[in-house]
């Protein structure tokens, strides 16, 4: 395990060398939050408060948090894997005593750390202390923290599955873009899930997507949550994490064998 932590540290240091890329990556997300603000202001003005089941403040908080979490999770695992595959650098990793999936996780976790410091925390601080949005500072924060960690692990496994698909198909551009769009939409990243039509909401309830953005946000801002609700969300998330972890492990074993037989 220690070796993977050193790998993460190495990539963290390497990422920090490129200061400007970090800065612009964060700036993009701040501008997106600004966009959400004006867009939804306009939507609320034209539709009127009554026709929507959430007020403007909640919607804005919800979507800004979704952006903050999306920014946190954006680590380009799938792109990285397909590039390793196409350039042939994959061979170098495979000649080392490392598990490829664990290696990729720790390589990319370094980005999560930097995203947290440059995107997620600043947005949270602006929302709570400058814009004074309705976010409680209590036990919900602890569960939010746990929930985000699990949701990243789920997200990583999906990303990884998409990435190693490149072993078969060589390119994953379409798949990768589709994945981000589907997850973002079905998980409440573009329109808050409470604003979805009743039927669609019932379908989303049984799908895994809500565990990624919707659940951590709910845990943080839903004031009616009891300890039971917090634990319930966690259990649902852990269930889906196990499902995706198993899937990605099995899928990886298949792709690894494929590449061992068919070459890079």
């Amino acid at each position: 395990m220690k070796k993977y932590i050193y790998i993460a540290k190495g990539f963290l240091l390497e990422r920090m060398v490129y200061r400007f890329s970090l800065f612009f990556n964060a700036l993009e997300k701040y501008l997106y939050v600004l966009l959400i603000f004006f867009l939804w202001k306009a939507i609320y003005r034209s539709l009127g408060q009554e026709s929507l089941s959430m007020d403007f403040k909640s919607t804005f908080t919800y979507l800004s948090l979704a952006t903050a979490i999306f920014g946190l999770f954006q680590t380009w695992v799938d792109w990285d894997i397909s590039q390793l595959m196409l350039s042939g650098d994959l061979s170098i990793i495979l000649t080392k005593p490392l598990d490829f999936q664990v290696y990729m996780f720790f390589k990319r976790v370094s980005w999560v750390v930097l995203n947290l410091l440059t995107i997620t925390l600043p947005i949270l601080i602006i929302l709570k202390f400058i814009l004074k949005m309705p976010i409680n500072l209590g036990i919900n924060f602890i569960f939010f923290f746990l929930s985000v960690i699990i949701s990243y692990l789920i997200y990583f496994n999906i990303d990884f599955i998409v990435g190693v698909t490149a072993f078969f198909t060589e390119t994953i551009w379409g798949l990768s873009v589709t994945k981000d769009a589907v997850i973002l939409f079905l998980s409440g990243g573009i329109v808050p899930i409470p604003l979805f039509p009743e039927n669609l909401r019932r379908i989303l309830e049984i799908l895994p997507f809500k565990t990624i953005y919707h659940m951590p946000i709910e845990v943080l801002i839903n004031r009616s949550f009891t300890i039971f609700d917090y634990l319930n969300s966690l259990i649902i998330q852990i269930f889906w994490l196990l499902v995706f972890l198993t899937l990605s492990r099995i899928y990886y074993k298949l792709t690894e064998r494929f590449i061992r037989i068919n070459g890079g």
Binding site: K2, K3, I5, Y6, I7, K9, G10, F11, L13, E14, V17, Y18, G88, D89, S91, I92, T95, K96, P97, L98
Partner: peptide, 27 residues
Amino acid sequence: VVFGQRTQLWWSLPLIESFKILKEIYE
């Protein structure tokens, strides 16, 4: 293993950092 056209070292890091990471990878 050395592949002449590729590198196993961390591109942007000082050499000694790469050696330290390899030290951990190979225990």
